[in-house]
Design a protein around this nucleic acid. Sequence first.
DNA 1: TTAACCATGTAAGGCGTTACATGATTCA
DNA 2: TGAATCATGTAACGCCTTACATGGTTAA
Lengths: 205, 205
Amino acid sequence: MSLRFALLALLRVGPLSGYDLQKQFAVSVGHVWHAPDSQIYPELRKMEAAGLIEGEERPRGERGTRKVYHMTDAGERAFLDWMRTPLEYARVRDPAHLRAAYLEATTPAAAREFFRAHISEWEGELAQWEGELARIAAVSNPMLALRLAVTPPEDRERTIAFKRFTYEGLVERAQGEIAWAQRGLALVDALAEDGAWSSAAELGA
Amino acid sequence: MSLRFALLALLRVGPLSGYDLQKQFAVSVGHVWHAPDSQIYPELRKMEAAGLIEGEERPRGERGTRKVYHMTDAGERAFLDWMRTPLEYARVRDPAHLRAAYLEATTPAAAREFFRAHISEWEGELAQWEGELARIAAVSNPMLALRLAVTPPEDRERTIAFKRFTYEGLVERAQGEIAWAQRGLALVDALAEDGAWSSAAELGA
DNA sequence: TTAACCATGTAAGGCGTTACATGATTCA
DNA sequence: TGAATCATGTAACGCCTTACATGGTTAA
């Protein structure tokens, strides 16, 4: 359901084609809510059916067309309603901590490999989010620039402040995950030190 | 797919009925991987079909029966293989940070309410995880006690260490979310101070 | 005897993933 | 003329959610 509001958030700055939406999605709101094109196009159609957006076919070249979507009043209302509605939090489902809880069952090597992969996964996310933070500071993210262009000057500070604040939170989360996994590596070292970490775990090796 | 390995992790300590499994699930591994009964029973059947576990019907009272599952060698191997396989990380899909990025669109009151709800959500998780940490320290979680009973003495430290480490990570994550949301409340106060936070957001009110 | 708990599911539907599919346009 | 990119999807499948459904057993 959040996908819908992520798309509305983008369309609030102005009309966009499905393709542009999908491209801009990937480099803006997609950093907090991932969605592939195969999900975006059908969702746009559903949103049009629900009256939240309207699409106009525009010619492109000789034979090509593309559909440019814009928000309706109902769409704007739906977005603002969502903002005032309590979020539904997903139940916890965390594969990394699930595995971490049972690492005694495997070998020290596999445990280390797990933590290294965790670090590298979150370093990737961290880089994305730090990049966004930098682009926010420099107002070099195209969607943010567009948004500021349609925002009254006195509201611009707020607009930037919430984006910065959001990505700061994500950066801290990633740093926390990395620090935790680094402590995990140290823990494996400590536990493996006496050489007693059993070989039973090598069954499937 | 992780559900399967969460169930195998429980069954490694010994045979359990579907019902017991489901009950124990909720108070142990369910803290990191939530699953309702309506998912657990069918998954057990699939796991049986895949040869990872075997179920035996046992009589219960006059007419009742219950199915007691135990792990097969193939199940043990599947679990250990999973331990040595890189995790698949889910793409980011974070409704709270999605909303946070666009809070300038709503009212200060709604923004505050959002952060308060975020705090209360994570305080709930925090309490769960801190409770688990305490039960781990006291070895008063029944599944952990069972597990230690079937674990050679020299491996018990490791078993406890990874559980403690896992829940410490979750506690820190929750604390991070709470701290972030508290800074969010302060940010809303600061931005609302000059009274200029516009009324456009009240459209749908 | 009635409530709590034991015990095990089905059914419908939404969201998301991966893979596949097709054709137009633009620029080098 | 060929590659990149514009443009828009479908199909199949799996996971998860919510709601519903049914009956047996045990202890007060």
